[in-house]
């Protein structure tokens, strides 16, 4: 059979664990198909696509494959934000259970956009990083905190902080000068930004979850031999659990790094978490109002949790 070389677009920088997962996947595919299908991973958005247009790029055949941040695709269909429901999921185990009901929905959504979902990997847990120590809900009041997207900013603001949107490139100077006094993001991003230079306390709020999906253009997929397709699906299914472990490990490792640099992880009491959850309820309600299709999926997940 003819050799197929596929380009995979990733907006995350070289060295990020998602990029390394994609490379591991590429190597495994090449081996499983005897070199008939090879994948070139292009990191750091070097193919010219930004996060929110990765879905369209695969759909239109501008690139064969992409490592897609699912929640960034809400502009195409709000249901892509289903993992962003505030405080619905509290741990990676929880997320795994949520995916049981969510995955078929995502698969169908991607298929509508002319692509096939190969595997999904969650981003590590979410934290809020601040300059000050907080022990009651009122302490959050008015602290300017940067969030990456509208959903995060809405959640931060509902808790009482001043959610601010700004590009990553502006964030570090803004932290240095005091234009913002906190950030809501993952631990790996915290290490990338050397947050210990500006911030002191880490709060494991886990306000939202989100995953990346690696997808392939459907026409490209159908042009691959049946045997190779089966091999690729096998590789994806086999590797996915280990990719989840990589994500969990990079989270733990990043927290260790930040603690070694002098930051302090502040435990949040159950009462405080409950108060935060209660305040964020408005954002949750607004979400289900905007995306009614997400409600039955979330309910099925909550049902499965109480059953289990």
């Amino acid at each position: 059979a003819a050799e197929t070389n596929l380009r995979l677009s990733d907006v995350l920088p070289e060295g990020n664990f998602m990029v390394e997962n994609a490379r591991t996947f590429a190597d495994a595919v090449s081996e499983a198909t005897d070199g008939e299908v090879t994948i070139t991973v292009n990191a750091a958005g070097s193919l010219g696509f930004k996060g929110p247009d990765q879905l369209g790029a695969v759909r239109d055949g501008l690139v064969d494959m992409a490592d897609i941040n699912i929640s960034q695709q809400v502009g195409s269909n709000p249901l892509f934000g289903a993992e962003g429901v505030p405080f619905l999921v509290s741990s990676m185990e929880d997320l795994k259970a949520y995916h049981e009901v969510l995955r078929p929905e995502f698969e169908a959504l991607f298929e509508q956009h002319n692509q096939k979902l190969l595997y999904m990997v969650p981003s590590p847990a979410q934290y809020v990083y601040l300059k000050v120590e907080v022990d009651s809900i009122d302490d959050f009041e008015g602290i300017p905190v940067r969030g990456a997207d509208k959903n995060t900013v809405d959640i931060i603001s509902s808790i009482g902080m001043d959610g601010v949107v700004m590009p990553w490139g502006e964030l570090l100077p803004a932290l240095a000068s005091g234009r913002v006094d906190g950030v809501a993001t993952s631990a790996t991003s915290g290490v990338d930004g050397r947050f210990w230079e500006f911030l002191d306390y880490i709060y494991a709020t886990n306000h939202t979850w989100g995953s990346n999906a690696v997808t392939i253009n459907m026409d490209t997929w159908n042009s691959i031999s049946e045997e190779d397709r089966a091999a690729i699906e096998n590789v994806a299914a086999e590797l996915e659990p280990s990719f989840w472990e990589v994500s969990r490990e990079s989270d733990l490792q990043s927290i260790r790094t930040m603690e070694a640099e002098g930051m302090t992880m502040v435990p949040l009491s159950d009462e405080l978490m409950d108060e935060i959850g209660a305040r964020a309820k408005t954002v949750q309600d607004a979400f289900f109002e905007r995306v009614p299709a997400a409600k039955p999926i979330a309910d099925a997940f909550i049902q499965s949790k109480t059953d289990g």
Binding site: G48, G61, L62, V63, P167
Partner: peptide, 19 residues
């Protein structure tokens, strides 16, 4: 790659980069 779809995406992305 379909040029008529690739280039407008590039043009829009580059000309509206917040940085």
């Amino acid at each position: 790659i379909p040029i008529d779809r690739l280039f407008p995406q590039y043009i829009f992305n580059i000309l509206t980069t917040p940085d």
